[in-house]
């Protein structure tokens, strides 16, 4: 009886000991900062009030009335709407091609995936170059199409679209690999049976490939939406969120608020809002996962 107790205590100590190093770093840089931010979001702390002043939910109320914050949130929503469906559709087409193509299979995989190997900051340089008036390939194309000189990044109407094009270029190849994995798992005899029944390729695509990759679509959609909040590095190089906040995104705005305006309380409130959004998206993911992936 007591021997069993000692044995169990030793096993507990061993288990916790193994987890401890990870737990220490997670605690310091995930759990503690989260709690600290949640607390700070309830205080007013900026250059005028160096000593934190408790304001309850005042920061959040102020956020809802702040036109810049609402503008940035709207930008982020458009950024997501612009990138998510387009990059998913492209990723699906790419995977369909790279999965079955007789020739050009490796070429397709490399050509579509390589943007993910380039740092976002370098991607920003590349696309800034493409968009530079008079010089850039895309700037010239746009000028030629519209018949006048355009500055795609300088115009509030086109700047977000220009960012979306870049994001699609970067992301589609990443999502392609998940579709590739899903398509490889579809039993081949399903297609054989379908073609024996005289089903056309189009029908097989509609009845077999698309439904069976549905869990992947959900999974990819969640990652894509999360990335719409995370991918902001390019703003430092390309626009600084301008002109007139037309291209600013949430994480970038938090950075500005925190490190340029030193408004810690508001920055914390926005961080809380962002984490809540991301958790909501992850909840969707867990929801979808339960049906599509089973652990042993």
């Amino acid at each position: 009886m007591s021997a069993g107790w000692i044995e169990r205590a030793r096993r507990n100590a061993f288990g916790w000991g193994l987890v401890l190093p990870s737990l220490l770093f997670l605690g310091l840089f995930t759990y503690y900062p989260m709690l600290r931010t949640a607390r700070l979001s309830l205080f007013e702390q900026d250059l005028a009030t160096p000593k934190p002043l408790f304001v309850g939910l005042g920061n959040f109320a102020a956020l809802l009335k702040d036109p810049v914050f609402l503008k940035v949130l709207g930008n982020n929503a458009w950024y997501a709407v612009g990138t998510v469906p387009a990059s998913i559709a492209l990723a699906f087409a790419m995977a369909l091609f790279a999965d079955k193509a007789v020739r050009g299979r490796t070429f397709a995989r490399v050509a579509f995936f390589y943007p993910n190997m380039i740092p976002m900051i370098a991607v920003a340089n590349i696309w800034l170059f493409l968009y530079t008036p008079h010089f850039g390939l895309l700037a010239r194309l746009a000028s030629w199409l519209s018949g006048q000189n355009v500055s795609l990044l300088g115009d509030p109407h086109t700047v977000l679209g220009a960012m979306i094009a870049m994001a699609i270029w970067k992301e589609a190849g990443y999502f392609m690999i998940f579709y590739l994995a899903a398509m490889q798992q579809i039993p081949k005899d399903l297609f054989e049976a379908a073609s024996a029944d005289g089903a056309r390729k189009w029908t097989a695509l509609r009845r077999i490939t698309i439904p069976l990759t549905m869990p992947t679509t959900l999974f990819v959609a969640v990652i894509a939406m999360t990335n719409a909040f995370k991918l902001v590095d390019h703003l430092w190089i390309m626009t600084k969120g301008g002109p007139n906040h037309a291209s600013s995104l949430l994480l970038y705005h938090i950075y500005e608020t925190s490190f340029q305006f030193y408004d810690q309380g508001m920055a914390a409130a926005m961080t809380v809002a962002m984490i809540a959004l991301l958790l909501l998206l992850s909840a969707l993911q867990v929801f979808g996962w339960d049906r599509s992936i089973h652990y042993d």
């Binding site: 288990g15 997670l26 995930t30 900062p33 909040f229 994480l251 938090i254 991301l278």
Partner: peptide
């Protein structure tokens, strides 16, 4: 290793995957 609190700890680890480090950069 079967140790007390394993399930709870595992859930705690899961939370870190849901909250990407980018969101916590300022904290």
């Amino acid at each position: 290793v079967r140790f007390a609190g394993r399930g709870m700890l595992f859930a705690l680890f899961l939370a870190q995957i849901m909250v990407p480090p980018d969101a916590l950069v300022f904290s």
